[in-house]
Every structure is written in C-alpha cells, then in structure tokens.
Amino acid sequence: MLNEWDFIGVGKFYTGDDEYDCLLGPLLARFASGANVDDVVGFLREEIEGHFGLELTDTEIATFAVRTVAWWQDEESRSTA
C-alpha cells in the first residue's frame, strides 16, 4: 500500500520496493497495539515531514490512514474468525 501511495513520487523511476520500508515496522506495531486513524495520521505526518522532508495535506495522509486501518481491522477479523 505504501508503494502504491508513493507519496514521494519515486515509483515511476525507482525499480526497488524498499523506499518505504522504514515505515513498515512502526506502522504494523501501531496497528497491532490498536492504533486508530488519528494515531496513524500523526505518525505518518511526523515521518513524512521529519524523515522525508515533505509536507502533505492532512487529507492526503488521512485518506491513506483510513485505508490502512480498515485493511488491518479486516485482516484481524479474518484471523479471529
């Protein structure tokens, strides 16, 4: 999902798939601990601004956060069914 979102816009030029690996572990840890959309938005905003040096709108970040939290919750419900 991070590669698809490609918020830094390297997908067209970059053949690797590790550009966003630094976000995977922290995101999964947050999901596993029950993070909600606001938690994920806050984390992503800090990382995108601090680590990547970019500024995205809250709407751009929130759209991605809603999608990923819903994905996690869906995966969780499947694993407990």
Rank of each mutant, 00 (worst) to 15 (best):
F43V: 04
C22E: 11
C22Q: 08
A35G: 14
F64S: 03
Q73R: 15
E4R: 14
R67T: 10
A32M: 08
D39P: 06
E47Q: 15
V10I: 12
E49P: 03
G42D: 13
T80R: 15
E46T: 11
F43R: 01
D18P: 00
S79Y: 15
N36L: 06
S33C: 09
A70R: 15
R45D: 07
W5L: 10
A70D: 15
E47L: 00
A70M: 12
A70S: 14
G25W: 06
R78T: 09
W72S: 10
W5I: 05
F52P: 04
V66S: 06
T57S: 15
F52H: 03
E19T: 03
E19I: 00
N3G: 01
E55W: 05
R30G: 15
Y20A: 00
W5K: 02
R45Q: 12
D38G: 06
G34Q: 01
R78L: 15
G16P: 05
D18F: 01
T68R: 13
G50A: 03
W5R: 06
T59A: 13
L28R: 15
F7K: 10
S79K: 15
Y20C: 01
D38S: 10
D21E: 11
D38P: 05
E55V: 15
V10E: 09
D74M: 12
T68Y: 05
L23H: 01
A70H: 11
N3H: 09
L54H: 12
T63H: 12
I48R: 05
D21I: 07
E49L: 13
V10S: 07
M1H: 05
A70V: 09
L2E: 04
T59R: 13
E75I: 11
D21K: 09
G25S: 13
E19Y: 01
M1W: 12
F13D: 11
L44I: 08
G50T: 09
F43I: 04
